[in-house]
Design a binder for these strands. Structure first.
Lengths: 222, 222
DNA sequence: ACCAGCCTTACGGTTTCCCGTAAAAAACCC
DNA sequence: GGGTTTTTTACGGGAAACCGTAAGGCTGGT
């Protein structure tokens, strides 16, 4: 089993549970330098361990970290931490443990960063964690069965998102072509804006713009 | 210190941490009937303990519970659980432990249900839990210092929310008076709907409905 | 009962949005 | 280059939303 594991998780209530799993169930020894509450410290520990010739084998990390009261961290989220960690030590295994319960996010992290497991916080999270770590150790990739599959019926281009965002910011659609030009995103006519909106509404079965905005906000598309 | 405490929390990772606090730090004995993963079971335990003449002194509960795979629970959220628990046993103390980090929610629960403490999951949640339980035992009410104060610039009536919801569901505002009537929320004319929308937009500085919807979705008002 | 103040409603005019059609432009294929 | 298809744009009619104003209704106070 793994000998050296780092936990990056800012909520003590979650951190403690992960530690408990590792120590009590998997009999992995943790020192008090093996769990940290922010990304910068996490990356520091990874680099130091690497320098010392005792690199971490596994990083267990959250995705969202609350902004801290005093100082502004260099890395403020788990995604960037994973990216930085892989840059320093490409062979480090990564397990993501997050409240975000979306299969699309998990898949994206697997394909873009090669993470080895994704466990959403939820009904069966403790069991999932145990299974995930065991799977990673065997060289497998673990995706929790509890991940919610979302029916992505339409995929949004950057232009689509920009239009939605401007609309959600209170612009009238007549102004949107100008805004897009100023933001140097694209140079399109009003008709194209209307057309894209129409397409999105049709694809997502929305009868008007407010409903479309609600839909996109709901799924964090914007 | 408390002798009999019930934990209602559906995420094992959170439940374990709460148990750890109670058992290891506060030396409170828990049996395996003292922590449950859904509201219905929680209420059952409270009622049974009351019948047996050994009522729970303290309920520690989450607010949101994931919908379960198979059966549909009678109570599906912490708020209703608190309400039902207080109805059965009005002197039970309540500590809410939730990801929702809003002072307004905490205050509302204090004034409407007389909860005794509110601890948001976060940076200092373990310490907060300890302090909260100690405070409750001394008869005090505990509100975490980490609760986020939100600049509520407008407070939404039930009617407001209903209108916004219908709009976000794709109804045109001409249809909304009928919908409201059918849902037997209120019997208002189209003009009133327009007026309320206007008021909300003015108060929240929104130039049109899409922006208003975005605002409300953003802050989970609907 | 009367008045004043506030809320609701009704209605008309203006703006914005929605949707079709057709012209123009661009891309594509011999 | 000529011809076809697809995309983009322009324009106009109709629907919905927006915003006044004025009339009607309810409430509380004297």
């Amino acid at each position: 089993m793994f000998k050296k594991v780092l936990i990056a998780e800012d909520y003590p209530s979650a951190s403690i549970s992960v530690r408990k799993i590792l120590e009590e169930d998997l009999k992995i020894k943790l020192s008090d330098t093996d769990y940290v509450y922010d990304c910068d410290t996490a990356l520091g520990r990874i680099k130091k361990a690497l320098r010392d010739g005792e690199p971490y084998e596994l990083l267990i990390t959250d995705l969202s970290f609350d902004e801290e009261a005093n100082h502004t961290p260099t890395i403020d989220n788990g995604r960037d931490l994973i990216s930085a960690a892989k840059a320093s030590q490409s062979d480090i295994k990564v397990l993501v443990f997050s409240v975000e319960n979306k299969a699309s996010i998990a898949k994206e992290l697997v394909s873009n960063f090669g993470i080895n497991a994704y466990v959403p916080k939820g009904r069966r999270d403790m069991q999932d964690l145990k299974d995930a770590i065991a799977d990673i150790y065997k060289g497998r990739t673990f995706l929790s069965k509890n991940l919610r599959q979302e029916e992505r019926t339409y995929d949004f281009t950057e232009l689509d998102k920009a239009i939605i965002q401007l609309l959600a910011a209170g612009k009238k659609q007549k102004e949107i072509p100008d805004c897009l030009k100023k933001m140097s995103i694209k140079d399109v006519g009003l008709s194209s804006v209307e057309k894209r909106l129409h397409q999105m509404r049709a694809a997502l079965d929305c009868s008007n713009n407010p409903q479309l905005i609600a839909y996109c906000k709901e799924r964090n598309i914007i």
